[in-house]
Amino acid sequence: MNLILLLIIGIEIAFWIVIAAGLIVRYVFQMPRLGLFFLALTPVLDLVLLIAASVDLMRGALATTAHAIAAIYIAVSIVFGKQMIRWTDERFRYYIMRQGNKPSKLYGYAYSRKYFKDWLKHVLAYVLGTGLLWIVIFLVNNADRTEALSSIIKLWSLVVGIDLALSITYFIWSSEAKYKEKIHE
């Protein structure tokens, strides 16, 4: 198995361990500063992945899908990281600690707007991630060695387009009616 792929898997596992440790320390042990320290380690994990993937490619490795996924992972983590931590924090507080309000679900126009805002964040992650990939392609300067990166850029472009189409459908076919039916039951 590719070393970079193993590193991505390890960092993803470490990401969730660090978040869980931060939440446990923050709420169970009532140490909010130490909990914040753990939560602040998540960008450090991204930096480790970025350095490892860059060094691997600069040493002459053939770019693989794993290298491209590293760029995607970093971009998504930068753009959605705070939102993912907030989502986890809300659920941990409510379901584990039995504190705070139950996380709410959005329906109808509110859901459509939220999904569209997330699509805009997806576009930002796409710009950052493909920017990293284009930089690597430029630095390696060998189309044969970076073909996997170019392929992922094309695939990700398609995914962003599909995500936009989904976003638009939520405005056209709202779940508002289903929500109103649930309330009246």
Rank of each mutant, 00 (worst) to 15 (best):
Y115T: 03
L149G: 01
T65K: 04
Q30C: 00
I72G: 00
N141L: 02
L5H: 09
M1N: 09
F29R: 07
V48S: 05
I11F: 11
G10Y: 12
S77K: 03
D56N: 14
S77L: 03
S151Y: 13
S175L: 01
S77Q: 10
S174E: 07
W16P: 11
L149D: 03
Y107M: 00
A53D: 00
L158Q: 07
N2S: 15
L34V: 14
V76M: 13
Y109F: 10
L36I: 01
M31W: 07
K114T: 01
L57Y: 06
S77D: 07
L5Y: 02
V136Q: 06
I9Y: 05
W156H: 05
S167I: 02
S157K: 04
S157V: 03
A68R: 02
P43T: 08
Y111D: 11
E90C: 00
S112Q: 04
S174Y: 02
Y170E: 04
N142R: 06
I152W: 09
Y95F: 15
L120G: 03
W134T: 03
L7W: 07
L41C: 14
A21M: 14
V160P: 03
D163P: 05
G129R: 04
I72Q: 02
L132R: 00
L57F: 08
N141I: 05
L6T: 10
I183Q: 13
S174W: 04
A14W: 12
I74R: 03
S77A: 13
R33E: 11
L128M: 14
I51G: 03
G22C: 04
I168M: 06
L62F: 10
S151A: 08
I19G: 07
W173S: 07
G22M: 05
V123T: 06
W87I: 07
R86N: 12
L3M: 10
L39T: 03
I4N: 08
V160G: 01
E185H: 15
V127E: 00
F15I: 01
F138K: 11
V140E: 05
V55P: 06
M84Q: 13
V76L: 13
L166G: 09
T130D: 11
T65F: 14
G81T: 11
T42F: 11
L149A: 06
R59P: 00
V48I: 15
K114M: 08
M97C: 08
L133T: 02
T65W: 10
G81E: 08
W87E: 12
V159L: 14
A14S: 15
I96W: 06
H122E: 14
A52F: 11
F92H: 08
Q99S: 07
Y73N: 00
F29E: 03
F138D: 12
L5G: 15
A110N: 05
V127W: 06
K82T: 14
S54A: 13
F29Y: 11
A61I: 02
E181V: 04
T88S: 15
R33W: 02
R26Q: 11
R33G: 06
A61T: 13
